[in-house]
């Protein structure tokens, strides 16, 4: 196993640990993307992120991968810190495998964490907007009803 693969493996494992006990096995092992969408999303997008962090940081690939991860974790009962903590998990994974985290990578990880936080906020905002939209729609029925009262 190459060092990069080892790091990825550890990163995925660390991220899986944020899910309740008893879930990590299933999320980690079941490879059918439709039977295990959460595990699939984690694996696919952490892989992309690691490639980019080690490579050129192509925003066209980083942004959607980060979005998919954060979008999912934004609705899974995590606190904001827990939701984006997985980014820092990489630092530990690298440390465990290589013994040290190169400065350049550390900086990139920090940047990614900040991006993740932005993304988290925009997902939460979207959730509130969607809620507000539904409430508005409901209020319209109510207004209609009351407007018609004699």
């Amino acid at each position: 196993m190459s060092a990069e693969q080892a790091i990825l493996q550890r990163w995925i494992e660390r991220t899986l640990k944020s899910y309740p006990d008893g879930m990590a096995g299933f999320l980690g092992e079941e490879r059918d993307p439709f039977r295990n969408p959460v595990g699939h999303t984690l694996r696919e997008n952490l892989t992309t992120l690691l490639q980019e962090l080690m490579g050129t940081m192509d925003q066209k690939r980083v942004a959607p991968a980060l979005d998919a991860l954060v979008r999912m974790r934004a609705v899974q009962n995590f606190s904001p810190a827990e939701a984006v903590r997985f980014v820092f998990g990489l630092r530990q994974a690298v440390f465990e495998v290589s013994g040290a985290v190169p400065d350049s990578l550390a900086t990139r990880i920090d940047e990614l964490a900040l991006m993740a936080f932005d993304q988290y906020m925009s997902c939460r905002e979207q959730i509130f907007e969607l809620r507000a939209k539904e409430i508005r729609r409901r209020a319209q029925y109510a207004a209609f009803e009351e407007g018609e009262e004699p």
Partner: peptide, 22 residues
């Protein structure tokens, strides 16, 4: 299907949405 419960709905709908995305 109510708004106050939106996060549960978003989680529950994720597998369906995942197939739609495909």
């Amino acid at each position: 299907g109510t708004d106050e419960n939106l996060e549960v709905r978003l989680r529950g709908g994720f597998p369906r949405a995942n197939a739609v995305r495909y």
